[in-house]
């Protein structure tokens, strides 16, 4: 698989040469392959946001390069907008960026900036609205009339409508209720499976990441501390905890059971996987009855 995004010695320093200079990202070398679902975790201030804002050219790295499909994105600074169309970015609380008179027109803002034909813009907007489960009757309403969760869907649809090769989402589920989180996450996963494009998801919820990510990038003090498959990263629970992170609760329980000698497998990430392993075990010991 060819790498769609690659960083080489990526470093970002805030505050120039002044007394308040701070290295936010230091010497990050990662390679993201086409069609992957990457989860990014790290405690507050670990450089996650600075890293992802460089990936679509919103911040220019102090040193190092970013390759998009093998080409340096800053080779021609005047064409940086093209990079932003290819690497879509959904910020935290994206509902605060809505401004148009109707939901549909707001979703059309991104594709409109790409200079597409009006029919194509409409087609993409409707498609994006379907992906995030926005009903057609909502599309003619003012975005300011909608509920918080609906606004967020509109904002995400506005980025999906640009049909980016890589979609970066910065904590898309923050502040949503549990049901809203599950639905939104499922929609993102569905979008990923249908479009086969690359997704980078930043989240503080280990459970969310465990459910959807193929590989996890762990940021710590501006450095890429780990970048490996989800099972392998969550198998290093102690190291994660020393970085102010943790593994999903169910993974932790299964690790403890395994340590105490129960015949359960390693690298259990979701409740469903755990049930699949534990149910036969409990049945065989007569703790629960076969249904």
């Amino acid at each position: 698989m060819p790498a769609v995004l690659e960083t080489k010695n990526l470093t970002f320093i805030y505050g120039g040469n002044g007394p308040f200079r701070k290295t936010a990202v230091s010497d990050v070398n990662i390679s993201i392959e086409k069609g992957e679902f990457i989860g990014v975790i790290g405690h507050t201030g670990s450089g996650k946001s600075t890293l992802i804002q460089q990936l679509n050219g919103l911040l220019r790295p102090t040193s190092g390069t970013i390759l998009l499909n093998g080409k340096d994105i800053w080779a021609e600074p005047k064409k940086i907008r093209q990079v932003r169309f290819q690497v879509g970015m959904v910020f935290q609380y994206p509902e605060h960026q809505l401004f148009e008179e109707t939901v549909l027109r707001d979703i059309c803002f991104g594709p409109g900036n790409m200079g597409l034909a009006p029919e194509e813009i409409q087609r993409r907007a409707y498609e994006a609205a379907d992906f995030v489960g926005l009903k057609r009757e909502l599309l003619e309403k003012s975005p300011f009339e909608l509920s918080g969760g609906e606004k967020r869907r509109v904002a995400i649809a506005g980025v999906i409508a640009m049909d980016p090769d890589v979609l970066i989402l910065d904590e898309p589920t923050a502040g949503l209720d549990p049901h809203g989180r599950d639905v939104l996450l499922a929609q993102i996963q569905n979008y990923h499976q249908r479009r086969k494009n690359t997704i980078v998801l930043v989240s503080h919820s280990m459970e969310d990441i465990a459910r959807v990510a193929d590989r996890i990038l762990v940021m710590n003090h501006g450095q890429a501390a780990m970048f490996d498959t989800t099972e392998k990263v969550f198998a290093r629970g102690d190291e994660l905890e020393s970085m102010g992170l943790r593994v999903p609760q169910i993974t932790k329980i299964m690790q403890i059971l395994q340590r105490d000698g129960y015949p359960v497998g390693n690298g259990v990430l979701t409740m469903e996987q755990a049930i699949r392993q534990l149910a036969p075990l409990l049945k065989s010991r007569g703790c629960i009855h076969a249904q």
Binding site: Q53, N56, L58, R81, R84, F85, G88, M89, F91, P94, H96, Q97, F109, G110, N113, M114, G158, V159, M162
Partner: peptide, 10 residues
């Protein structure tokens, strides 16, 4: 923040 978000939308 808003400027960044709109720039990201082109």
């Amino acid at each position: 923040k808003i400027m960044s978000a709109q720039k990201a939308r082109g």
